[in-house]
Design a protein around this nucleic acid. Structure first.
Length: 583
DNA sequence: GCCGTTTTCGGCCCGACTGTTTTCAGTCG
């Protein structure tokens, strides 16, 4: 059972308990535990197998959650959860996904009317029965009916890249509004989370109503969810929600800090404030007893008032940022300008849309100094993958190109070589040995059992000519789960054989993810951020990869392709010392 | 249920907005 599945079980436990009106702090403990487990790089199952007492050493996991982890792994279930499911059918959890319907109201519907499914709820609303319940009325009934279609539309979180398009359009839309003096997009968008559930727009203005009127004219708004003195929420036709907050200048930093989150990060920040006799909210930092305003105009001021550094938004997840700050080791995160090469891309020779020359020109225009052409190998028949002959002919073309263009820019002879279903590489070693750069990847047999997939990847890492594993877990956001792979075994093998791991920058992949990149960094494994571009435009996705790398706390020295090719080349095949930082 | 540079018991972040109410509970972020 992997960490995500264990975390999911605890989340379900918390949801059901919330439905029953359990102590909210107990719920938070379970939810914190779930998040901690999901973010933990070492597998909980292997910790339990090794020494269960190590579980409570993890911050946020106490005796209760640890015992339930052990029971879950050893017996496949948690007794308490089983009992709960006997009392409350799992389907009621769907009711909680309706906007505006929380655990209290859902519990009343279940208790008073035995409603357990969305269909039953819809029928009851349409029959006008729900409005008869205490605490409900006509408006609530209408809201529920509206909400059911939203919940049923299964509006999943959108890719950061799409959120960025909406954010940019919103910025443009608000630009002519004279009442606005400052504007920032906060929330998970600012933290660079791989998917977004909504967008938070924060502005400074003296006349909030004018701003709200202008905001309300953004195209594609289907519904205004709410509008008050300082806050307005709308829903777009695709179901995506945008929240607007208007604050005065002296509160901008406090509001930005607050609405950037994450929620868990803010819980810690506020408890720190409390310990210092301060109170912090979206309006500023105040003396808790006198209410005297202390700070709030900038985020830096807000954190400084709490003796904390300005955390990069990408790190604000209540993971390790507070410990790192306390030790004065908050990393200086990688930036897009640090990247000087791109080591994974395709051309018209297989499934790409541009020639080598076109890719080269586009990469140069982006300020890169080298690229690797890594078309697919023969096994990927759909993409017309390369056999040894075609590959060698492509490499001759690259040699010619490099000779003609001198030393200012280098095109590397590469290949994305498939790791075959039965194990082994798709091209012979004598071919691979002639390459400058070999990325190995899995495209077939993704559903194989854990041991088999792991063995395939580990063996690829042992191959002396392989440089890097591409998209190491195979996940596609919102579409495909990662392969069942023992990632720690992959890390061990990469470390031992001096190989690198890719952070595929495609916004649908972002693989390795932030948590695994951070874990790879601990092992000292260099990360390669690659576009996996199939067109000249595709090269631009690099920035999404950099954003994910920042969330992992990576610095430019943790990322291999911030080096020149000649520096990077020397790193390949050099085993990493456990305590050795990559330089 | 978790946790401790005040604490092993007693706390646990805080405010905006809505709807159903006559002063506030529920929901959300």
């Amino acid at each position: 059972m992997n960490n995500a599945q264990i975390a999911g079980t605890f989340e379900q436990l918390a949801d059901l308990l919330e439905f029953q009106g359990a102590n909210p702090f107990r719920l938070r403990a379970y939810r914190n535990g779930a998040r901690t487990i999901r973010d933990h790089s070492e597998s909980i199952e292997s910790i339990v197998a090794d020494d269960p007492s190590r579980l409570t050493e993890i911050d946020g996991i106490g005796k209760g959650v640890a015992e339930k982890c052990v029971a879950l792994i050893e017996t496949g279930e948690i007794a308490q959860l089983k009992e709960l499911l006997d009392e409350v059918p799992k389907s009621v959890l769907a009711l909680l996904r309706i906007p505006g319907l929380g655990p209290k109201k859902a519990a009343i519907l279940f208790r008073e009317m035995q409603i357990t499914t969305l269909e039953q709820l819809q029928a009851a609303c349409e029959a006008g029965k729900v409005r008869e319940l205490k605490g409900f009325a006509k408006k609530t009934e209408e809201l529920i009916l509206q909400g059911i279609s939203i919940a049923a539309a299964a509006n999943e979180r959108i890719f950061w890249a799409l959120g960025d398009e909406i954010a940019t359009a919103m910025r443009e839309h608000l630009r002519p509004c004279k009442a606005i003096s400052q504007l920032e997009l906060a929330g998970s968008y600012r933290r660079g989370k791989e998917t977004l559930g909504d967008l938070d727009v924060l502005v400074v203005a003296t006349d909030p109503q004018t701003v709200m009127n202008h905001f309300g004219e953004f195209p594609d708004i289907e519904q205004t969810i709410g509008r008050g003195e300082t806050k307005m929420s709308v829903r777009l036709s695709n179901g995506f929600q945008i929240d607007l907050r208007v604050v005065p200048e002296e509160s901008f930093g406090a509001a930005l800090q607050y609405f950037t989150g994450s929620k868990d990060h803010n819980v810690v920040v506020r408890s720190r404030a409390k310990q210092r006799g301060l109170k912090i909210n979206e309006w500023g930092v105040f003396n808790a007893t006198t209410d005297e305003y202390i700070a709030g105009a900038t985020e830096k001021d807000v954190y400084a008032a709490l003796d904390m550094p300005l955390f990069p938004p990408e790190l604000r997840e209540a993971r390790r940022e507070f410990d790192l700050a306390a030790e004065g080791e908050l990393p200086r995160l990688i930036e897009i300008q640090d990247v000087c090469g791109d080591l994974h891309m395709h051309t018209t020779e297989t499934d790409g849309k541009a020639t080598i020359l076109e890719m080269m020109a586009a990469a140069r225009a982006q300020g890169l100094s080298y690229i690797a052409i890594t078309d697919h190998s023969q096994r990927v028949t759909m993409a017309h993958g390369l056999d040894a002959d075609r590959l060698r002919r492509q490499w001759e073309e690259i040699d010619d190109l490099n000779q003609r263009h001198g030393k200012a820019f280098t095109v590397l002879k590469g290949i994305e070589c498939d790791i075959l279903e039965a194990g082994g590489m798709d091209l012979q070693d004598d071919v691979l040995s002639e390459a400058d750069w070999v990325v190995a990847s899995i495209h077939y047999g993704q559903k194989q059992p854990r041991s088999q997939i792991t063995e395939r990847i580990v063996n690829a890492l042992k191959n002396p000519y392989v440089s890097c594993i591409a998209h190491p877990t195979g996940r596609l956001l919102n579409r495909r789960e990662p392969y069942d792979v023992d990632i720690e075994a992959v890390f061990e093998a990469a470390k031992t054989h001096g190989k690198m791991l890719e952070l595929n920058a495609n916004p649908m992949r972002l693989d390795l993810n932030d948590v695994l990149c951070a874990a790879a960094k601990k092992y000292g494994i260099p990360i390669v951020i690659s576009s996996d571009a199939h067109s000249t435009d595709g090269l631009a996705v690099m920035r999404y990869g950099v954003l994910q790398a920042r969330r992992a706390g990576l610095t430019s020295s943790d990322v291999a392709n911030t080096r020149t090719w000649s520096q990077l080349h020397k790193l390949i095949g050099k085993p990493v010392d456990q305590d050795d930082q990559v330089v």
